[in-house]
Design a protein around this nucleic acid. Sequence first.
RNA 1: GUGCCCAUAGCUCAACCGGAUAGAGCACCAGCCUUCUAAGCUGGGGGUUACAGGUUCGAUUCCUGUUGGGCACACCA
Length: 558
Amino acid sequence: MSFVINFKSHIAELFAQALREVAPDAAQIDILIERPKQASHGDYACNLAMQLAKPLRKSPRDIAQALIAALPASEVIEKVEIAGAGFINLFLTKAAKQAIVHAVLHAGAGYGHIHLGAGRKLQVEFVSANPTGPLHVGHGRGAAVGDCLCNVLHAAGWNVTREFYYNDAGAQIENLMRSVQLRCKGITPDDPSWPEGGYRGDYIADVARAYMAMETVEADDQRTTGKGDADDEVAIRHFAVAYLRREQDLDLRAFNVEFDVFSLESALYSEGKVEETVSRLVASGHTYEQDDALWLRTTDFGDDKDRVMRKSDGGYTYFVPDVAYHLDKWRRGFVRVINEQGADHHSTITRVRAGLQALDIGIPKDWPDYVLHQMVTVLKNGEEVKISKRAGSYVTLRDLIDEVGCDATRYFLAARHPDSQLVFDIDLAKSKTNDNPVYYIQYAHARISTVLETWGGERLSLLQADFSLLDSEYETALLQLMIDYPQVIESAAQDLAPHLVAFYLKDLASAFHSYYNASRFLVDDEAVKCARLALIAAAAQVMSNGLALLGVSAPEKM
RNA sequence: GUGCCCAUAGCUCAACCGGAUAGAGCACCAGCCUUCUAAGCUGGGGGUUACAGGUUCGAUUCCUGUUGGGCACACCA
């Protein structure tokens, strides 16, 4: 097939050539090709004539006329029209659209993979929960958004590393150790001696029990056996961290999320990276001593106040390992680093970037990137849920997975713009009716699978179908949507907005369901049958590819 | 008090970096299963895009202000 499949960039190139001829002085202008909302406005539209009206001091319609005259011929374009104030509307030939079926079936799972990232190294850090308890809903949103983002960026051609960073050394780990120790000694949170910052959830009792029973736990990145000695604080700390890391790992696995690298804060100290970062910052001349503390002049780099690096008691603030950690990421050669976190961490952005700038080693000002997701509230029976049995003070990710399943949980947590607050309605996510968008999409896929199975033929033979028979409005709508899919991947990757994939899939499923109700596929006419089956097989392929990006299954039956 | 995010149909959300008549689903009303899955489809009503200004051929989108909601503002992590 010699047809151009990326019509948008193809058309943009045609206009670039026309522009050089019509207005050589304005050749640097951005050429924007968009999909009109109305079918009567064509398949693609260009507003270039309107943009040129001012600099050329001519009417948009005259300019449009000239542009069209200068437009190189293309076998994929049926006709070009001027409309409205000066829009140039382009209509594709039917054959050009129909060719997408072959392209999708031929590329299979690879359809939608683009070369935006050109194989460059990129890292996404997400979840990064501290090992002090089970993952909560917010971590779940981070996991869903982060993992989907990784999938999208991978499809966009980046070499993606998934990383999980956790603090295994700070004050909260001390609280964890203390809480487990007290539980080992039979003291419960309702005892008056229970410390202020102690963890009260039931899971602490489980950790204590396992430790006293000398169980062995294995997390992705460590393995430890309980000593059974309630006075050995080092052993308890070690065991508790490993135990909770394992629990988080199991939650993540149940959520279909895997990491390539686990990074420990303690390693930054033990490997001398924190010390090294401090000496580099001191050597760079951006630090000063005041009130027995060492300060970094982050205000030189956009922060609203300077930050303490070394406290007067000699310890470092958390800010220092944060910078050390990102320096380490930089050295590992990631062209791009994206930190997916809860919005409550937004204040660290300026600080981390300022710290990296202060190193004076050529790290870009806006490195790393951040995707911050807003809060999640959980609703059940119309009321907000705030606690869970196991964790006590918050709703766990595990609760959601157990109650509504992995697919629906992932979909609901990833299908919203990260910037907006999210209401997770358990009743809606659980409902197996048409209220539920996950099933709507999966149902479309299952329906197609059933039709193909009923047909029973060899799928490869569909590549030979006569696609020119695909001519109805329903068929055209499906073709157009499949053509758009790589564009969706590109937008989602560029805007770091994985939810676009979810919305696209709803549209695709909707176009299919309408088609399904309007026409039969298994008809007597062999040629028509094969063409239609090829089309829906291609649609199923795109659905399956898109669902894979969301981490949601594409069932054959429902 | 300062900074960041958000505000679109009764509800939950879209709108392709400024485009043409702002779109879906739920809910409401009226229809469609002897046929490949009705977890579906078709049609209908429903909007001053929070409010007030500004920028221009053109604003839900960009700027300023106001109101309302969320988050963050340690020698804690």
